[in-house]
Simulated scan of single mutants.
Amino acid sequence: MDRSTAAPIRSLDEFAKRPPMKWSKHILGYLFLLPAVVIFFTFLWLPIGKGIVYSFYDIDFVKGDSFVGWANYTKIFKDAEVTVSAKNTLYYMMLGILIGFWVPILFAIAISEIRRFQGFVRVAAYLPFVVPLVVLYGLWKWLYDPVGPINAALEKLGFSQVLFLTDKAWSMISIVFMETWQSFGSAMLIYLAAIMSVPRDWYEAAEIDGAGVWKRIRHITLPAIKNQIILLFLLQLIATSQGFQTQFAMLDGGPNNSTLTYALLIQRYAFTRQDYGAASALGVLMFLVLGLLAVLQYRMSNKKEE
Results as ranks from 00 to 15, higher is better:
Gln236Cys: 00
Glu179Tyr: 03
Trp140Lys: 00
Leu139Gln: 06
Leu260Ser: 02
Leu44Ile: 11
Asp60Trp: 01
Gln118Ile: 10
Glu204Phe: 01
Pro19Asn: 10
Thr83Phe: 14
Ala224Trp: 05
Ala169His: 14
Ala270Leu: 07
Ile238Thr: 01
Thr261Lys: 02
Ala125Glu: 10
Trp70Asp: 05
Ser55Met: 06
Tyr269Gly: 03
Ile97Gly: 08
Ile39Phe: 14
Phe287Glu: 05
Gly49Ala: 06
Arg116Asp: 09
Leu98Ile: 07
Ser112Gln: 13
Asp65Gln: 10
Ala7Ile: 09
Thr180Ile: 05
Glu207Arg: 15
Ala294Asp: 12
Ala211Phe: 11
Gly148Gln: 12
Asp2Gln: 12
Lys168Asn: 11
Leu189Gly: 02
Ser66Arg: 14
Ala153Ile: 08
Ala294Phe: 15
Ile111Lys: 02
Asp167Thr: 02
Gly148Ile: 12
Ala16Gln: 13
Ile105Met: 06
Ile266Val: 09
Tyr126Glu: 01
Val123Gln: 04
Phe164Thr: 10
Thr5Tyr: 04
Leu260Gln: 07
Ile52Met: 14
Glu306Val: 13
Pro223Gln: 00
Phe61Arg: 10
Leu251Pro: 07
Ile230Lys: 01
Phe233Thr: 08
Ile59Lys: 10
Tyr262Leu: 06
Ile266Gly: 00
Leu139Gly: 04
Trp142Arg: 04
Val130Lys: 05
Lys17Leu: 15
Glu204Asn: 11
Asn227Ala: 09
Pro132Thr: 01
Glu207Ser: 13
Ser280Gln: 06
Lys168His: 10
Gly283Asp: 02
Gly49Thr: 06
Leu139Phe: 12
Val295Arg: 12
Tyr73Ala: 04
Ser280Lys: 09
Leu46Ile: 15
Ala249Trp: 05
Phe120Gln: 00
Phe159Val: 06
Trp102Gln: 00
Thr180Lys: 05
Ile52Cys: 09
Asp79Gln: 07
Phe107Asn: 01
Tyr91Asp: 04
Ile105Pro: 06
Glu81Gln: 11
Ala278Asp: 04
Gly51Lys: 05
Ile173Asp: 09
Leu106Ala: 13
Ser11Gly: 09
Ile39Lys: 05
Tyr262Thr: 02
Asp13Trp: 14
Phe177Leu: 15
Val176Asn: 07
Val135Gln: 02
Val131Leu: 04
Asn72Thr: 07
Ile217Asp: 02
Tyr298Pro: 02
Ser112Arg: 12
Met286Gly: 04
Tyr57Val: 00
Lys303Cys: 07
Tyr203Leu: 05
Ser186Arg: 15
Leu265Thr: 03
Leu33Asp: 08
Ala206Trp: 07
Trp70Glu: 04
Ala249Cys: 02
His26Ala: 08
Leu12Ala: 11
Ala194Glu: 12
Ser55Tyr: 03
Trp70Val: 10
Leu90Gln: 05
Asp209His: 01
Ser4Thr: 00
Ser186Gln: 15
Val62Gly: 00
Ala153Met: 08
Ala187Tyr: 13
Thr180Pro: 08
Leu234His: 03
Arg273Trp: 12
Leu292Val: 15
Leu192Trp: 11
Leu139Asn: 08
Ala153His: 00
Ile150Val: 13
Val289Gln: 01
Thr261Leu: 08
Leu234Phe: 10
Ile173Tyr: 14
Leu251Arg: 09
Tyr91Thr: 13
Gly210Asp: 11
Lys303His: 12
Tyr57Leu: 03
Val131Ala: 02
Thr180Val: 09
Leu192Val: 04
Pro146Ser: 04
Ser197Cys: 07
Asp201Trp: 12
Ser301Phe: 14
Val147Pro: 00
Arg273Met: 11
Pro20Asp: 07
Asn227Cys: 00
Trp70Thr: 11
